[in-house]
Design a protein around this nucleic acid. Structure first.
Lengths: 199, 199
DNA sequence: CGAGCATTCTATAGATGAATAGAAAAGTAG
DNA sequence: CTACTTTTCTATTCATCTATAGAATGCTCG
């Protein structure tokens, strides 16, 4: 098979992307050095350039890893025929498990993507804003069917849901012992019912 | 008056802190250079060291500026005798107006303080966690008096409120046209009643 | 004015880090 | 074992950035 060498290369390349994600999440893009990344991968600084043309390219790969499936999962949730509450919970779950599974990559996407050059950032942004739009659609549908109050500004609400999930996502990355399902439950309840006693 | 020179110095020093805040908010601590800060202030790179011993000290000052009154305001809200809903709204308002007034300093506190050396970070952390505790107290009191549902985990809820406010705070810093009161209203409603139609 | 202090400037030292080049090592196939 | 390829290493270049030193400018008060 002609691809066995390539597979090995790709495998190590992915390992390099994950190493970069980990270091970028810890120290930020500018605070991280290529030496840090190489060390975490177990090779020397210069060797890293066998897998990346530049530090910026590494950041780009990390961001792609962070956002890719995260955005993809939303589409299927919107299209599904679950009731509103289930869709919301699925969204929150999907969002938070991305933080857990990709470890640091999604955090890096959120915090460091602005250091990418314009062109690379634009393509990423499309994926990210697709996520917000999907969420907004879910809310608008629920508003039509009466599940969501009419006074709600769905655009702002989508922004709030994302903000809330990102805030918890950061905590999840920092504290691996945090119970994911507990957080999902808390966030969903909070979003659905608020803090108060008004049923 | 013996302090007129000192006043002038302090005035320019504060201007330097604000310039640093602005640059740190844009480029992050490590992405920012002392030249960037000096240029924004209208002086040359070397001159900046007349006001700071080091770049890290500048970051420290910015973080202090960001968190100081933000933390202070909470205490008075907790102690006040307003009903729960008003306290919550006051907290959200206080949080978000800090973002607007301090411009970038609070953002820097949130995103860059981890680059401070251990000792300096600890003192800041106390102020910040004081904020969370105050919020938690408000929620616990409201739970006792029945304003907040008993199923609520108040510690997590306080975390959520902060996370939500920070998310919007970031948007507020980036977009100065965003209507502060509109955001306050949206967040308070969301937190009090949730998204749904369940009165 | 002119002495003394405050503020800013220029120039540079010293350190660090991204990226490159070419040698070495490891692995694979004939 | 040997020729060839892939991967890693060492050593270096070049640019950049923090921080300092000392000169120049500006300001205030006697």
């Amino acid at each position: 098979m002609p691809s066995t060498d390539d597979d090995k290369y790709q495998h190590q390349r992915v390992a390099a992307i994950r190493a970069a994600a980990s270091v970028f999440a810890d120290k930020g893009f500018h605070g991280a050095t290529t030496k840090d990344i190489a060390t975490r991968l177990g090779i020397k600084q210069g060797s890293l350039y066998y897998y990346f043309d530049s530090k910026v390219e590494a950041l780009h790969e990390v961001c792609m890893l962070g956002i890719r499936e995260y955005a993809g999962r939303m589409a299927s949730i919107v299209d599904s025929s679950q009731p509103f509450a289930a869709k919301l919970m699925a969204s929150v779950t999907s969002h938070l498990s991305c933080y857990r599974e990709n470890n640091e990559a999604l955090k890096v996407y959120n915090d460091e993507r602005l250091y990418l050059p314009e062109e690379k950032r634009t393509r990423l942004k499309e994926l990210g804003s697709g996520y917000r739009q999907s969420l907004e659609e879910i809310l608008l549908d629920a508003q039509k069917s009466g599940d969501v109050r009419h006074s709600l500004n769905c655009r702002m609400a989508a922004q709030s849901v994302i903000g809330l999930c990102n805030a918890w996502g950061h905590l999840i990355v920092r504290d691996p012992d945090l119970d994911l399902f507990g957080v999902v439950q808390h966030c969903t309840d909070l979003l659905l019912s608020g803090l108060t006693n008004n049923h």
